[in-house]
Nucleic acid binder design. Structure first.
Lengths: 101, 101
DNA sequence: GCTATACTTCGATCGTTGTCAAACGATCCA
DNA sequence: TGGATCGTTTGACAACGATCGAAGTATAGC
């Protein structure tokens, strides 16, 4: 896990941006799938139950990361995504649980 | 309070639609202001701290109502809006609290 | 070095949406 | 009945955003 792509600090995460990021069926789905595991998960298209191109999924990862919902790790050619549970819980307690319930 | 404008039944409220409705700064603001009172509140522009036209606010009330977030009552020339707290709490427990906190 | 791999970025398309002014509809009241 | 008021709807426009294929970038492995 070489480096981490740029992402907002915990205090810089904005509620409107988070809601905008969650307000898309594809992103909500991948966030749900991310929430079922605790370790980082592969970024790749095959790992998710969505019917879009790799380019589009890449766009969604960026939106989620820039909104502060996920962390992306780069490891060679592979990328890994992880939900920022703690940061989100600290910033907006209960929000993620309510959305994913 | 003559009639109530059409709105989705509790079971028909969708999470993505609710998130889309909340993911706008103006709508989030008026929802916040609505949440500070328990009775229905006036629909009129002067009653809210937003910098838009009456036509645009009217559009936002429609989006919120159709998403299932609010109920609109018609009484003569006046309209009143109310947060659907119970329906939202039943459908997505904790969501509204988390968003408004 | 070369080539295959894994994902991103670019450029373009096209539907969606936030916005306003103007027109409209309904209601109240003199 | 005729205005004035309150709010919606319509029509138009610009900005945004989801999407894709193609080109680009970095890395692994030979």
């Amino acid at each position: 896990m070489a480096r981490t792509l740029p992402q907002p600090a915990r205090e810089a995460i904005e509620i409107v941006t988070v809601l905008q990021a969650l307000a898309d069926p594809v992103r909500l789905e991948v966030i749900r799938e991310l929430s079922t595991v605790t370790e980082p998960r592969s970024c790749s298209l095959e790992a998710y139950d969505v019917d879009i191109s790799a380019a589009t999924l890449s766009h969604h990862w960026r939106v989620l990361r820039e909104a502060g919902l996920t962390t992306t790790f780069v490891d060679g050619r592979r990328r890994w995504v992880e939900l920022r549970r703690d940061d989100l819980q600290a910033r907006f307690p209960g929000l993620l649980d309510a959305v994913l319930a």
